[in-house]
Every structure is written in C-alpha cells, then in structure tokens.
Amino acid sequence: MTDPTSATPEGGSVIHDLGYRPYTGPRLGPAAIARALVITGFRNAFGLGRSGKSKVLPFILLALNLMPAVIVGGVMVFVGLDALPIGYAQYASTTQVLLGIFVASQAPVLFSRDLRHGTISLYLARPLPSSTYAIARWASLLGATLVFLLLPILVLYAVALLGELDVSDQTSDAAVAVGLALLLALSLTGLAGLIASWSTRRGFAVVATIALLLIGNGIVTAIQGISQQEGHARVGEVAGLFSPYSLYRGLMSIWTDNKTPTPPTGMPMQLAYVVVFIALSVACLGGLVWRYRRVATA
C-alpha cells in the first residue's frame, strides 16, 4: 500500500480518519464559562451568531437611535454652534421609544429562546449553576442595552470635542449622562428580562414589556403634566416613582440642566428616586435568579 502520509498519485490530498481522539487540553472553571456565556449572549442580542434575519431588527433600531446624534454632529461641524443642541442625558429620554422596543425585542432572545426550545436543559446539564446562568444572561442584556444607550453619548461627546467646546464641562456632563444611562439600563434589563423569563413565547414577552414600559410611562407622564398644571406637584413626583423612564427624567432634572415636569423636590424625595431605581433593578435580578432556580428543579 502507499504511504498514508503522502498524497494520492493523482496529486489530490487524502483525508485520513484518525478515529476518535480524546480531549486532553485544559478545562476552564465556572468564571471562564460564565464569561463565554455573557459574550455569546451579547452577540446574540444583536443577532450575531444567529440567522441573517435576526440581525435586521437590532441593527435598524441601533441605526435609528444613532441618527439624531449623527445629524447633530453634522450640524455642529458645518454650522458651528457654541453648545450641543441636545443634552447627553436628554438623548435617551428623547429616543426612549426606540430604547423600549430594543430591550423588549431582544430580551426574549436571551431569556425566552432557551426556555421555548428546551436548550435550557443542556445548559443545566453543564457545570454552570442556574443562578450563574441567570446572571450571565442578565449581564448580556445589560451590555447590549448599555451599547444602545452609550453609543449616542460617545458620538455627541466626540462631536463636542471636535467642535472645540469646553472639555471639562462636556466631560462632567457626559459622565453624569453615563451614570444615568447605567441606572436606566439596569432597571430596563431587569424588567424586560424578568418578563421574558416568564414567557416561552417571544411575542407575548415583547408586547408585555412594551406595554409596561411605554404605556406605563405614558400614564405617568400624563399624571405629571396634569398635576403640574393643577398645582399639585407632589402627586406628579410620587407618580414618577412608578416608571423607569420617569425615574430617569426625575434624576436628570436634578443632576443636569434639562428640566422636566414635576422633578422630585426635597432631599427625601430625591433619595427615594435613587433608591427605587436601584431597588427595582436588584429586585428584578433577584426574581430572575429565583425563576431559573425553579426552572432547574422543575
């Protein structure tokens, strides 16, 4: 017979079946596995590593969300304004509908999909505990939401610096906006994730999340508007505690120059806004961990 390592006489190469080869390389610990899960989930949230169709919606939303910032950039460069026409923190409030749709549509990708297709049992049959799985999924969605929120801020900041605006002013404004964006992303991720983890149907999760975020915000905004006109600002301040978007606006009014109706007045109320914002996020994350612990033992 011919030498198995050589090519065939015709010059073609041969594939040799080496049989089964055991894996002797390293096996990484839970931290590395969780990191891999977070990265894959983050990519999946934008449709990367999935079918071509699933990339369409997230990237359209991302492009729409960035468009105002790019337009502002163009205006700044060609006209030369002495201030940004839109505040860093105000941006997310202006594009809140896009943000809501993005979070609502991509949370089921990370949470409902595994439950619907039974993939969750493969994850649970692997070393990662269910609580780590839940936190990793949550972190993926948080990362995707932060990209959605922070990219426009980055673009605006770059435009401001190119327009030779005052660097220290711009930096501190942008830093406040980043902090606010983090709070908003934490709460939206928690809410959307929790809803999606209770629904194996993607459509239901999307509708429920959009309803909660946008309709809830609509109701709160209406109450705040009426209470300001009627002179009962306190009512509007309390109502503001009931939606992530209104919490965001309330804190934005305190911490930046962008004023909104019925901002929280007085130290206790302002503190309540911060506490509710954080507590909502923590409660949702706790709910997620609890939910997946139940899934694991069902």
Partner: peptide, 27 residues
C-alpha cells in the same frame, strides 16, 4: 435529552462550539 433542545436560528457548528465552551473548553 429526550425532547427538543436545539435553537432553530443557530447552525449546528456554532451551537456545538458554544456548548463545548459551556463545558469549560477554551474557544
């Protein structure tokens, strides 16, 4: 598992890579 457990929008190649990583193998 006995029941379905495959996400429909991922290729077998990507999926098996991901699942191997979920068991601790480097990429």
């Amino acid at each position: 598992p006995e029941h379905d457990c495959l996400p429909p929008d991922v290729s077998a190649s990507d999926f098996v890579v991901h699942m191997a990583m979920m068991s601790g193998l480097p990429r």
